[in-house]
């Protein structure tokens, strides 16, 4: 009974965060802000759903697999965001015009793919 209550709360909370990730990806004005929604809300949402599955079955094998999935999502979601963000700068994805500043603009070397740092400007 208590178990079912816990499972229900985690399921609804997790899927609600994933729903917010969906809304976010639809409404946010540019790519980087959409990635905010998918990495954070997607990670916690999938994590909560997997925790709910582990709580429902209460079995060592299932718990091990759900923990593996959670750990994997925690490790990979930010890495995927980094890879896509980096690619976006190479492709030249238009960003929101209300951005306050963009330190990364023109920092990538288009030929060598080396990323410089802000100190480069100070040198002649």
């Amino acid at each position: 009974m208590i178990n079912d209550l816990l499972v229900s709360v985690m399921l609804v909370a997790g899927t609600f965060f994933m729903f917010l990730a969906g809304i976010g990806v639809l409404r946010m004005p540019d790519l980087l802000m959409r990635m905010h929604a998918t990495t954070k809300a997607g990670t916690l949402g999938a994590g909560l759903v997997m925790l709910a599955v582990a709580t429902h079955f209460l079995d060592a094998g299932v718990t091990a697999r759900t923990l593996a999935i959670i750990l994997f999502i925690l490790l990979t979601a930010p890495v995927a965001a980094h890879a896509i963000g980096r690619a976006a700068y190479f492709v030249g994805v238009p960003l929101w015009d209300k951005m306050l500043k963009d330190d990364l603009k023109n920092r990538y070397d288009p030929d060598t793919h080396i990323l410089g740092n802000p100190d480069d400007d100070k040198q002649p």
């Binding site: 399921l11 997790g14 899927t15 994933m18 969906g22 998918t38 997607g42 990670t43 949402g45 999938a46 759903v49 997997m50 709910a52 599955v53 759900t66 999935i69 999502i73 979601a77």
Partner: peptide
């Protein structure tokens, strides 16, 4: 990741 959650449920 939505499909992963779907499969879990």
């Amino acid at each position: 990741s939505l499909t992963v959650a779907f499969i879990g449920i």
